[in-house]
Amino acid sequence: MAQVSVTVNGKTHTANVEPRLLLVHFLREQLNLTGTHIGCDTSQCGACTVLVDGRSAKSCTIFAVQADGSEITTIEGLARDGRLHPLQEGFWEEHGLQCGYCTPGMIMSAVDLLNEHPSPTEREIRDGIDGNFCRCTGYEHIVNAIQYAANKR
């Protein structure tokens, strides 16, 4: 077992974990932050995307022990004081989701994208969510949602 201490959505958690415990399982099973999802085994689909020290990362491809000492933001930590994040608002306004399963990861990737490109072109948006699969929407409304958030900021 190994000790892990991470700050998740502003709150520090310390736990003894098996080294092989994936960060996504640590978040979901131990912290009960089930908004972060799992969609594949091979680091492609992006459903598990969270921010690790401010940058988007696939939490199914990181062991919890690797994240020791990191600041992590999950979808649950995005809204502040009961107010939706502009991206959450955008996804709602623009019908950027259907089944919603990819949505938390998609939104977390978009947070990183807008941090890097505050006024992204459509091309930059589509490339910026290259690591996130959505099987429902055909992506167009997701692009609109991110544009909405960019315009709002």
Binding site: R28, L33, T34, G35, T36, H37, I38, T74, I75, E76, L78, A79, L84, Q88, F91, W92, L97, G100, Y101, T103, P104, I107
Partner: peptide, 14 residues
Amino acid sequence: DPRLIQGRATYVDD
């Protein structure tokens, strides 16, 4: 959408 965009929906693995 509100539950889905905030990670507060309940899928079977949750």
